[in-house]
């Protein structure tokens, strides 16, 4: 179980301390045991036709005028671009 949690944490980009991992193991274990009651439902997809469908907008450009404020909110920016550190495996 612990291995599963470590892998799940990696996928979620979260760090857990050893204590937190132990706690997570217990918590997650209990939660999964609880939600396991769903397994008695039969498998299969729903046949219901969805009610709310086809919500579209037309292909029209509109500038909300928020671009400057958005980049201004960046923790770090340079030359109007968001700055991030290098990935160690750059593409």
């Amino acid at each position: 179980m612990r291995e599963e949690i470590i892998e799940t944490a990696r996928l979620a980009q979260l760090d857990f301390t050893e204590d937190e991992l132990t706690q997570a193991e217990v918590q997650l274990g209990r939660m999964l045991a609880y939600v396991n009651r769903l397994s008695k439902l039969p498998a299969g997809e729903s046949e219901d036709a969805p009610a709310h469908v086809n919500v579209f907008r037309e292909d029209v450009v509109r500038d909300e005028g928020l671009a400057t404020e958005i980049i201004a909110g960046a923790p770090e920016a340079r030359e109007n671009q968001f700055v991030v550190p290098k990935t160690f495996a750059n593409e």
Partner: peptide
Amino acid sequence: CRCSTAFGAKPNTQICP
């Protein structure tokens, strides 16, 4: 979203929430 797809704009000028 309604942002323009036009090419060649300055960085982060064709963005919205």
